[in-house]
Design a binder for these strands. Sequence first.
DNA 1: CGACCTGTGAATATGGTGTGAACGCAGGCA
DNA 2: TGCCTGCGTTCACACCATATTCACAGGTCG
Lengths: 101, 101
Amino acid sequence: MLAGMGRLDIRPSEHAALVDGRPLSLTVRELQLLVTLAEHPQRIMTRDELFAEVWGGRPRSDDRSVDVYVSRLRAKLGEAIPGAQLIHTHNGIGYRFSPDG
Amino acid sequence: MLAGMGRLDIRPSEHAALVDGRPLSLTVRELQLLVTLAEHPQRIMTRDELFAEVWGGRPRSDDRSVDVYVSRLRAKLGEAIPGAQLIHTHNGIGYRFSPDG
DNA sequence: CGACCTGTGAATATGGTGTGAACGCAGGCA
DNA sequence: TGCCTGCGTTCACACCATATTCACAGGTCG
């Protein structure tokens, strides 16, 4: 199980992410991104790594897909768990998932 | 691995410096400087050496970049590890990194 | 068609960077 | 000891790079 210690429970095999047992309505991309991040808690992942896992291949040099989906993910997570800060930005590098904020 | 003996664990390849497993939020420059210092523990490094490694080239004669970034690094390290004195000043020469304070 | 997902470009917001200046501390010397 | 001086430390700011968010057009699937 991924990140099941807090209120967030991610179940890749069931294509679901639950908050207090209640499923978030994430799109496929959003879930893929969340799963990828959550598979490496506390690890700073570059945009290239995230892109490779979720989209496959390499992003165009000016591709902002990862950023946009991080933004969408944060919006939905923030709505479900107000005040939570699960995804951290590392400027110039990438993003990091921290299960406990 | 660099300086992994204490609470501080520096991982240049992961763009990260961990304290008790949790990444510090360092900027790219700050991390570069920390890595450079930590690559030569107990060795006094001159400003010129540090500048050459982190910024490349030679600093202007009155350049204070190294000092400023040492200060910023100390602030963040001190917040994460209260009481720690990892970076030592050597007056008129430069700085020295000591993994165990 | 309608509802939604997706990726892109563009506007906005945020944070990093280097510089100059003010401040503080330590060492030298009378 | 007390002052002076040089160096190190920190602050404040302007500029620039990067991240965030918004709006939209094309695609998909019912």
